[in-house]
Amino acid sequence: MALNQILQYIFSGITVGSIYAFVAIGYNIIYNSTGIINFAQGEFVMLGGMIAYTFSNFMPLLPAIIAAILITAAIGGLIENVFIRRMRKTSVLGMIVITIGLSILIREFALSIWDEQIRALRFFTGNEISSVNILGARISPQVLWVLGVTLVLTAGLYFFLKFTLTGQAMRACSENPTAAKLCGIRTDRMVSLSFMVSAGIGALGGCVVSPLTQTHYAMGSDLAIKGFTVAILGGLGNPMSAVAAGILLGLIEAFSISILPMAYKDVISIIILLIVLVARPSGLFGSRSASALKDY
């Protein structure tokens, strides 16, 4: 393989990996505040892309994307308020079942609004054929947008969780909800907020990759399992390492296409998921002893 070809694979891997990272960050934020794995996480990405596409037909791109993020975040908050809050006392089995039920409902809802067609948001800069030359590899400027947004999001999330009062309160809730409550933190509000933030992040991801990977009403369940693979690879509960794990999985998938048929791409990442789940459930970057104490 020539250098420019390898670079081409690397860029496409990082792009796909970024979208997995967006989903995985969403998983982690909700998991931290509730202990739930939200199987409907992939649906937020789809909603983001779809809503932004609809709005972009009659307004500029930026407001359309912002509207998509806000609406999806509102849907996330609504889901938490209407369904998850009442379910606090049920079993893990019940939680899995209800989030799966919700993901199907969102998908069918999207199907009846946007039908079966594949849609794509327009390119942020340039169009389908414009490309940037980096060391002989020709890549779409949208790839640079995806990388930039991922970087900004990661840095922003780090800053938010580490330095703002709300972010610190959210972290406190995930460390110990009872203690957080005793300190005067409204834990139920934090749970709502975490659903809104993770839905919003999913929607943002859906918008930036939509020009490259297109948006389809049924894309959610694939993203859900890939995003989960990434969340587990990075260590569940750790949003930052999810970015590294996401890019790693994206690269593995991109290079697997050069060896195996395209159709088996998903098989490889799911086999990685199964191996990691069984052999090292704490993830590549997670602490084993800490994960032994957690309850899945």
Binding site: V267, L273, P281, Y296
Partner: peptide
Amino acid sequence: LRGHYLGMATMGFGIIVNRIVVG
């Protein structure tokens, strides 16, 4: 595995079967 992990692992198995069949 338990709980969420088991759910995802079995769902992953189902998707593997689906992808192999389709591909």
